[in-house]
Simulated assay, not measured.
Amino acid sequence: MIGSLLLPELKQLIRDKDFAQLRDILVEFPAPDLAELLDDLEPADTVVLLRILPQDVAAEVFEHIPISGQEELLQALGDVDVAKILNELAADDRTALLEELPAKATQRMLGLLSPEKRKVASELLGYPKDSVGRRMTPAYVAIERGWTVGQVLEHLRRVGRLQQRTVLHQLYVVDKDGRLVDWVRLQTLVVAEADQPVAELFEGTDLSLKATDNQESAVAAFQKYDVTVL
């Protein structure tokens, strides 16, 4: 829908180099819609649009483009633009892209990442193909056993503001060594009383997999526990 309505106008704005108005129009639309729009543009025009979008928005749009389209864009974009997008991608989306590239291209992409992001990407790519490890993300919310619901929600608000892409569907209770103790659903927290101990809401199930398990194991666990992340 967005493509058929806006495509002629956007192409004209690109020809006119009216990038300020282009940006104002594009930022009003959700990332999935913008990704569909890029499919209808020539690669050169797609590059223009990705460059004028805010960095975090461009990365989110890029995540919704099919892998084959992502590969084409990486070839069309310069290193500076590629670095901006790759460093903003969620870790699991970045891994999904890198594992499809030829080895030489993957090494080039890794070289464009910040040291911290490169370390994470290299670790995830080090797991066997089709393993759970290839789809992991380091972004999750850890909480403490002794907190109340109110304390958890306040912590969640702080984390959500600082890390927009952190997984928030489930919150994980960890011990002082970072080992998983239990977990709680966000939907359970939001209807509980603020002074209720969060420990009373724990699921009490072993929601974990080994990084070397195959991805079919993850699918089975999703279905068993009725969750969207593990």
Results as ranks from 00 to 15, higher is better:
residue 5 L to G: 14
residue 9 E to Q: 08
residue 14 I to N: 00
residue 18 D to N: 12
residue 21 Q to I: 01
residue 24 D to Y: 07
residue 28 E to I: 07
residue 29 F to T: 15
residue 33 D to F: 07
residue 36 E to Q: 12
residue 36 E to P: 09
residue 45 D to V: 02
residue 45 D to P: 08
residue 47 V to D: 12
residue 48 V to Y: 06
residue 55 Q to T: 15
residue 57 V to Q: 12
residue 65 I to L: 15
residue 66 P to Q: 04
residue 74 L to M: 09
residue 79 D to R: 08
residue 81 D to S: 07
residue 90 A to P: 09
residue 90 A to Q: 14
residue 91 A to D: 11
residue 92 D to Q: 06
residue 93 D to E: 12
residue 96 A to C: 12
residue 97 L to R: 12
residue 98 L to I: 05
residue 101 L to H: 04
residue 104 K to W: 11
residue 110 L to P: 04
residue 111 G to L: 00
residue 111 G to E: 00
residue 111 G to D: 00
residue 111 G to P: 01
residue 112 L to F: 05
residue 119 K to L: 08
residue 120 V to M: 13
residue 122 S to V: 14
residue 128 P to W: 01
residue 129 K to Q: 10
residue 131 S to Y: 02
residue 133 G to Y: 00
residue 134 R to Y: 06
residue 136 M to N: 06
residue 137 T to Y: 03
residue 138 P to D: 03
residue 139 A to G: 07
residue 141 V to E: 02
residue 142 A to G: 14
residue 145 R to Y: 08
residue 147 W to H: 10
residue 158 R to V: 11
residue 166 T to G: 02
residue 174 V to Y: 03
residue 182 D to M: 03
residue 186 L to R: 00
residue 187 Q to M: 06
residue 187 Q to V: 08
residue 188 T to Q: 07
residue 188 T to Y: 01
residue 189 L to R: 02
residue 193 E to T: 08
residue 201 L to Y: 01
residue 204 G to E: 10
residue 208 S to P: 14
residue 210 K to F: 11
residue 211 A to Y: 02
residue 215 Q to N: 10
residue 219 V to L: 15
residue 224 K to N: 09
residue 227 V to M: 05
